[in-house]
Lab assay of single mutants.
Amino acid sequence: MQRVNMIMAESPGLITICLLGYLLSAECTVFLDHENANKILNRPKRYNSGKLEEFVQGNLERECMEEKCSFEEAREVFENTERTTEFWKQYVDGDQCESNPCLNGGSCKDDINSYECWCPFGFEGKNCELDVTCNIKNGRCEQFCKNSADNKVVCSCTEGYRLAENQKSCEPAVPFPCGRVSVSQTSKLTRAETVFPDVDYVNSTEAETILDNITQSTQSFNDFTRVVGGEDAKPGQFPWQVVLNGKVDAFCGGSIVNEKWIVTAAHCVETGVKITVVAGEHNIEETEHTEQKRNVIRIIPHHNYNAAINKYNHDIALLELDEPLVLNSYVTPICIADKEYTNIFLKFGSGYVSGWGRVFHKGRSALVLQYLRVPLVDRATCLRSTKFTIYNNMFCAGFHEGGRDSCQGDSGGPHVTEVEGTSFLTGIISWGEECAMKGKYGIYTKVSRYVNWIKEKTKLT
């Protein structure tokens, strides 16, 4: 034993070699072989497995989906700052455009905790909710729209109204504003409101030439003092309507412009014939205590009207009353817009006519005020429907199939267009061939041609 100890002390290297040989010859039971080890760690190889990531292109799944990435790591994937920024906006807080917040056709661009709407022409605001041009839906104005110097929408209202708090709607500024039905039992019968379409306001006024200088022999019209197929109006439903009495009662109609003036057809009036105007009328054979009678003290036909040349060209006249009318729910003026808007309103496509005229061709006159909704007829169809001249200051309205029309005794009465609950004068009943005849239409004086003249002559002093 002493000898062994001496050998170990003198030859430590020998001992180490012996131990190493023993270990190498022993069977290893701690580690699995290569094949079995792979069965336990069965993990798919990654895209760049075996390579240094710093030297390969980034992978979106590896960089940002398996674990949260930084902007720089995302930049490695896209290799483009702009594309990385677009991805980053949604990656950080989701897609803010998912709810489609942009209105009126706006395009949404996502941002971090926010979004941006790219608005089409005519709109602005956070969600493109603000109209900035009158060309689109009248700028959301209830009545009139004008573009300011910086191309912003400025709404306005006709006389007797003021802008509401929203700067879009119009509200009454006087007790009985024009064009409004205020009798409670008839307010439910107000005709369907007309909503502004998209309009090209630059070209809204037709490029028409008034044929002022045409000389033409007097034409022989049949029954051209021209509501057939209409309905009984309720008291106060058309408070701007008046009836004219002269040699015979209810020979023509008219509309209240203001307390002192009536507008009617020029062919209705004769110099030297006494005319009485009755406002607030409903049943011409009954006294309903809503009527107001006034005498006409002055007749002003349009300066281009000449019955000797043509009885229905420039067929418009103004009547001055001896005493002002007292405005109330049964006696209310009709609204008159400017030339541009009167023309736009007419193009809405349908209007209402009213009167006490004959209820059928050569038949009896109506006792109760009649009204009828009539569609506008395109000019080409209008011209083809008659052998008589249709001037540019006239328009056609009615039904091709016949059966409904204005008729004798309705002449001078109103053709009105309702705009968001307020009625505007767009025409004056003038003439036609018979009444409600198939293929024939009622012919009306186009008020847009005469609004400046009306307003100039009827100013209240």
Rank of each mutant, 00 (worst) to 15 (best):
residue 147 N to E: 14
residue 70 S to D: 07
residue 432 G to I: 05
residue 150 D to A: 10
residue 179 G to F: 01
residue 149 A to G: 08
residue 345 F to G: 01
residue 143 Q to H: 14
residue 192 A to G: 12
residue 62 R to I: 01
residue 300 I to D: 02
residue 18 C to A: 15
residue 448 S to H: 07
residue 66 E to L: 04
residue 333 P to K: 04
residue 94 G to C: 05
residue 176 F to S: 05
residue 264 T to E: 01
residue 131 D to I: 10
residue 260 K to S: 02
residue 396 C to F: 02
residue 3 R to I: 13
residue 420 E to D: 15
residue 380 A to V: 09
residue 259 E to R: 06
residue 106 G to M: 03
residue 344 I to Q: 09
residue 374 V to G: 02
residue 275 I to V: 10
residue 400 H to C: 06
residue 313 N to P: 03
residue 19 L to M: 09
residue 5 N to L: 14
residue 204 S to H: 11
residue 108 C to V: 02
residue 378 D to M: 04
residue 142 E to I: 05
residue 236 G to S: 05
residue 208 E to R: 11
residue 143 Q to T: 03
residue 377 V to L: 08
residue 207 A to P: 15
residue 273 V to D: 09
residue 421 G to F: 04
residue 92 V to G: 12
residue 255 S to N: 04
residue 141 C to K: 00
residue 435 C to A: 04
residue 169 S to H: 06
residue 76 E to H: 02
residue 234 K to Y: 15
residue 355 G to L: 07
residue 348 F to D: 08
residue 406 S to G: 15
residue 356 W to I: 09
residue 37 A to D: 01
residue 130 L to W: 08
residue 155 C to R: 01
residue 286 E to F: 10
residue 174 V to Y: 05
residue 26 A to T: 14
residue 258 N to R: 03
residue 353 V to P: 02
residue 452 N to F: 05
residue 380 A to H: 08
residue 442 G to H: 15
residue 109 K to T: 13
residue 263 V to H: 01
residue 116 E to M: 12
residue 369 L to K: 15
residue 159 E to H: 07
residue 315 D to F: 00
residue 354 S to T: 15
residue 420 E to H: 08
residue 151 N to Y: 12
residue 238 F to W: 08
residue 226 R to P: 08
residue 169 S to I: 05
residue 360 F to M: 15
residue 13 G to V: 13
residue 41 L to Y: 06
residue 426 T to L: 02
residue 365 S to L: 08
residue 443 I to Y: 06
residue 231 E to H: 13
residue 351 G to K: 02
residue 94 G to Q: 14
residue 174 V to K: 07
residue 50 G to D: 10
residue 255 S to E: 02
residue 13 G to Y: 14
residue 254 G to C: 02
residue 450 Y to D: 02
residue 11 S to A: 13
residue 273 V to K: 12
residue 271 T to L: 14
residue 461 T to C: 08
residue 269 V to F: 05
residue 401 E to Q: 12
residue 297 I to F: 05
residue 344 I to T: 11
residue 233 A to Y: 08
residue 98 E to Y: 13
residue 243 V to N: 05
residue 341 Y to C: 04
residue 31 F to H: 07
residue 199 V to C: 07
residue 445 T to N: 04
residue 318 L to D: 00
residue 176 F to W: 07
residue 214 I to S: 15
residue 200 D to A: 10
residue 254 G to V: 01
residue 309 I to R: 10
residue 315 D to S: 03
residue 223 D to L: 11
residue 455 K to I: 06
residue 125 G to W: 02
residue 282 H to M: 09
residue 156 S to K: 09
residue 459 K to D: 15
residue 157 C to F: 01
residue 257 V to M: 03
residue 312 Y to L: 08
residue 136 I to R: 13
residue 102 C to A: 02
residue 238 F to I: 07
residue 401 E to F: 09
residue 21 G to Y: 15
residue 347 K to D: 07
residue 264 T to K: 01
residue 224 F to N: 13
residue 97 C to E: 03
residue 93 D to F: 08
residue 209 T to P: 14
residue 378 D to S: 10
residue 117 C to T: 02
residue 164 A to K: 11
residue 418 E to S: 10
residue 50 G to Q: 08
residue 439 G to L: 04
residue 164 A to S: 07
residue 167 Q to T: 09
residue 458 T to V: 06
residue 91 Y to F: 06
residue 334 I to T: 02
residue 360 F to R: 15
residue 320 E to W: 01
residue 262 I to H: 01
residue 319 L to I: 07
residue 267 H to N: 05
residue 310 N to Q: 07
residue 98 E to H: 11
residue 354 S to I: 14
residue 239 P to L: 01
residue 94 G to N: 14
residue 4 V to H: 12
residue 341 Y to W: 07
residue 415 H to L: 04
residue 439 G to K: 08
residue 14 L to N: 03
residue 47 Y to V: 05
residue 222 N to F: 10
residue 230 G to Y: 11
residue 208 E to L: 13
residue 148 S to T: 14
residue 389 T to I: 12
residue 148 S to G: 10
residue 105 G to H: 12
residue 114 S to K: 07
residue 226 R to K: 10
residue 181 V to D: 06
residue 10 E to D: 12
residue 348 F to S: 15
residue 117 C to H: 02
residue 135 N to G: 13
residue 54 E to P: 01
residue 159 E to W: 06
residue 423 S to R: 09
residue 183 V to W: 09
residue 237 Q to D: 06
residue 85 T to Q: 15
residue 31 F to N: 11
residue 329 S to M: 09
residue 3 R to W: 13
residue 134 C to M: 04
residue 262 I to L: 04
residue 62 R to N: 02
residue 330 Y to V: 05
residue 319 L to K: 00
residue 167 Q to F: 11
residue 224 F to H: 10
residue 55 F to Y: 09
residue 236 G to K: 07
residue 265 A to Y: 01
residue 217 S to L: 06
residue 223 D to P: 13
residue 454 I to D: 01
residue 354 S to D: 01
residue 62 R to S: 04
residue 251 F to P: 06
residue 286 E to R: 10
residue 133 T to N: 13
residue 408 Q to L: 12
residue 352 Y to A: 07
residue 201 Y to S: 07
residue 2 Q to Y: 13
residue 101 P to E: 04
residue 197 P to R: 09
residue 19 L to T: 09
residue 115 Y to S: 04
residue 237 Q to W: 09
residue 149 A to V: 13
residue 267 H to P: 00
residue 109 K to P: 02
residue 343 N to E: 15
residue 120 P to M: 09
residue 175 P to N: 08
residue 262 I to D: 01
residue 33 D to M: 12
residue 272 G to H: 11
residue 377 V to N: 02
residue 369 L to P: 15
residue 51 K to G: 06
residue 310 N to G: 07
